[in-house]
């Protein structure tokens, strides 16, 4: 549900960028342990273009939900950038303060961009991750749906 929200909110764009963003959205919801598996896929000789760095992003909302933007408050985020020996560069930008998670996210992005190891990336990381997140989302939706109100109107007597 939420991942569709991510892709819904962004408008016309290049399909390759959309696919890359979809992978990033998956990765952004993954745990550190789920992402760690990428280290077994990454080649040797990865260069840290930007060592993982924690900072802030000012989160914005819209007035009335649809109007002009305003600053809601900040959130912690961590970013990293890596370059593979092939020259492919990858970026990790994640909420939170986990440097290893951001670097692993950058590795996944770099491997995705590089393309030659996409199958293995999909099989060992992305597919299991997608399945886990879908399972969680379905469960959450069902839990929430159990609290949906079904109104019925009592027939009112005349006397």
């Amino acid at each position: 549900m939420s991942r569709e929200a991510v892709s819904r909110s962004s408008l016309p764009e290049d399909p390759s960028i959309a696919a890359r963003r979809a992978v990033m959205a998956l990765v952004a919801e993954a745990t550190a342990i789920e992402l760690r598996a990428v280290r077994a896929i990454a080649p040797v000789g990865v260069v840290d273009l930007r060592a993982p760095e924690t900072g802030l992003v000012m989160v914005r909302g819209r007035i009335g939900g649809t109007g002009a933007a305003f600053n809601l408050g900040e959130a912690t985020m961590t970013r990293a950038a890596v370059r593979l020996p092939s020259g492919a560069t990858g970026f990790g930008h994640l909420l939170g303060r986990d440097p290893a998670r951001a670097r692993d996210a950058a590795l996944i992005d770099a491997l995705w961009v590089e393309g030659t190891r996409r199958d293995r990336l999909e099989r060992e990381i992305l597919a299991p991750l997608r399945a886990r997140l879908d399972r969680d989302a379905r469960l959450r939706a069902a839990e929430v749906a159990s609290t949906r109100v079904d109104f019925f109107t009592l027939v009112r007597g005349d006397d």
């Binding site: 549900m1 939420s2 929200a5 819904r8 909110s9 760095e53 924690t54 900072g55 802030l56 992003v57 000012m58 989160v59 914005r60 909302g61 819209r62 939900g65 649809t66 933007a69 600053n71 809601l72 900040e74 959130a75 912690t76 985020m77 970013r79 989302a137 959450r140 939706a141 929430v144 609290t147």
Partner: peptide
């Protein structure tokens, strides 16, 4: 918070596309 650099501002969040809990 004052010890961290700010990297920028987010796109405005879309509460219309919320995964609703309530």
């Amino acid at each position: 918070r004052t010890t961290l650099p700010r990297f920028g501002a987010s796109r405005p969040i879309d509460t219309g596309a919320m995964a609703v809990e309530r």
